[in-house]
Design a protein around this nucleic acid. Structure first.
Lengths: 197, 197
DNA sequence: GTCTATAACAGGATAGAC
DNA sequence: GTCTATCCTGTTATAGAC
């Protein structure tokens, strides 16, 4: 029965969306299964039928978020300056979805603690991101857009740190920080600085 | 009686140090007054005699941390390239005190949520930091070390974002990220880029 | 200042009916 | 799949003795 399966999946996705909001607002530790259940009009026990524990639910939410992200940044295999500008586009987009950004900031903050259920997720995520961005930079070198000998990993770390750090500042004080513009400025200055002589 | 007062203050400072560790490990929401009390060999009720609520204790810890920070970065009123290099020195030092860094990362992450007891503290902190760094940059312009027309606020935001973002990456995956070196590299490249022609 | 005791509650998880 | 009922644990905060 396709119908039955489909409703089950749709239900699960509604739960994930609700849980995402709750985790974003309160962090993992502060989140309440009862409140999540309420948002999808389900009892707390009914919620736990779909995700056996709070911890599993968080992991599912993080994977869900990654999936959403990859729908828009995954397969566009550019390299060089275009790839960096695509990062700036991501930041532009993020400025329009504070909820997603907040989930990420709150969970990464909590997840620096080794025992946290998001710790491994965060580590994998950073490693993958670093590798992707570094690869784009190296591709730029091959194409002659960037000067050879640049430290791809270091620049990748900086780009990622800049994105994350600006997100935190922006969430805490939105009117004072134009996250998108400041990041784009960095990207453009970097592209110029990396141009071969 | 000086003695009595001194013991009281010393006790309070021991509590603050213990609470700092607990908040750093578990965030505000995850922290437990009982565990903090245990660390200073006090009952939970005894602890609350000194700080009337968990919320007040957090605020006291944050102020305490700021005080520690200012002992080492406050009155050195440099400007220009020296001030930026002093920032890199701070990052060097931070790499040796993961506990303090972790407190900051965890709390800033949680505090992006408006209702959080650390929200105001975080906002004030960012505004002050931004103003200080921007002032240093402008002083560099006056002295002719930096080219006029630079966007001091934007560069200040970037420097702060870079510090914070690298801290998170470093805490999550210490072996993969040489926070101090990567930040210093950024600072030196920035100093070079800002030199007047 | 410090303690024990307890109030008052909220959290996650499980059992079992429907 | 969903519910109600319940268990168990842990939380902050307060009252009152010493």
């Amino acid at each position: 029965m396709k119908r039955g399966y489909a409703t089950g999946e749709a239900r699960k996705e509604r739960i994930l969306a609700a849980a995402l909001l709750e985790f974003a607002d309160n962090g993992y530790r502060g989140a309440s299964l009862a409140r999540i259940a309420e948002r999808v009009e389900l009892s707390q026990a009914g919620l736990l039928h779909h995700f056996k524990s709070k911890e599993r639910l968080l992991v599912a939410v993080l994977d869900y978020r990654d999936e959403l992200d990859q729908r828009r940044f995954g397969p566009g295999r550019e390299g060089g300056a275009d790839a960096l500008r695509a990062l700036a586009d991501v930041v532009d987009h993020n400025a329009r979805v504070p909820g997603l950004v907040q989930l990420f900031s709150v969970i990464s903050g909590e997840a620096v603690t080794p025992g946290h259920p998001g710790h491994e997720w965060a580590r994998r995520r950073y490693r993958r991101l670093r590798a992707d961005v570094a690869a784009s930079l190296r591709l730029g070198v091959e194409r002659g857009e960037f000067r050879p000998g640049l430290d791809a990993e270091a620049h990748a770390d900086r780009l990622i740190a800049m994105m994350d750090g600006l997100q935190t500042q922006w969430l805490i004080d939105p009117d004072q920080v134009d996250m998108a513009a400041i990041f784009r400025g960095y990207v453009e200055e970097l592209i110029a600085a990396l141009r071969p002589d």
